[in-house]
Design a protein around this nucleic acid. Sequence first.
DNA 1: GTTATAGGCAAGTGGCCACTTGCCTGTCAA
DNA 2: TTGACAGGCAAGTGGCCACTTGCCTATAAC
Lengths: 98, 98
Amino acid sequence: MDADPDLFKAIGDATRRTILDELTERDGQTLFELCSRLTMKHGLASSRQAVSQHLAVLEQAGLVHTRRQGRYKFHHLDTSPLRSIVERWPIDREAPNP
Amino acid sequence: MDADPDLFKAIGDATRRTILDELTERDGQTLFELCSRLTMKHGLASSRQAVSQHLAVLEQAGLVHTRRQGRYKFHHLDTSPLRSIVERWPIDREAPNP
DNA sequence: GTTATAGGCAAGTGGCCACTTGCCTGTCAA
DNA sequence: TTGACAGGCAAGTGGCCACTTGCCTATAAC
């Protein structure tokens, strides 16, 4: 029971959720790419180290996979761990919209 | 963007997730009922006040609705707020099991 | 080689949050 | 009406975590 506390810790932070949003919109970004976009679009004054630590947490939760290429490190989104949430507490399939 | 930080805060705590598990198994429990079951089954040495505060957080997130009846207060699970998670980051519909 | 770029590592710090403690209110049975 | 029971309110405390700071490694351009 409660096999993945890392997952909930990962999505528990607002900045990390914004990072997931960013990767949803544009997958495979580098660290610096994410940094500039977070400050530009979302107004988050997140330093490079802060974003790097956030990405480490997201990677540990399995929500982000990394791919090294030269001196670049590309970050790819993986939403499959989120499935465990709706499997744990089944959502009543009611259409909220008509 | 990020309209419901209360939701992620609610499911961010392990004890609150266990409370959701308890309510999934048996809906409409009172505070004392939850307290004894959490200590019995899950080994959580959660005091009454702690569980009460957890329930308040869950209620604020819309995951738990309460129903007063005399001196009893019954807690009912509502998993519909969880839908916003999978709507925000769509899960690739791949069958992980054959 | 030298410099700039992309990223990593580790210690320190401040704020939030879970939990406790103590006391209070309301409901029901005797 | 008195006691037990179910729950609420508020202040205090300790620990975790996000963020910073400073320095380091590695790849690529010049």
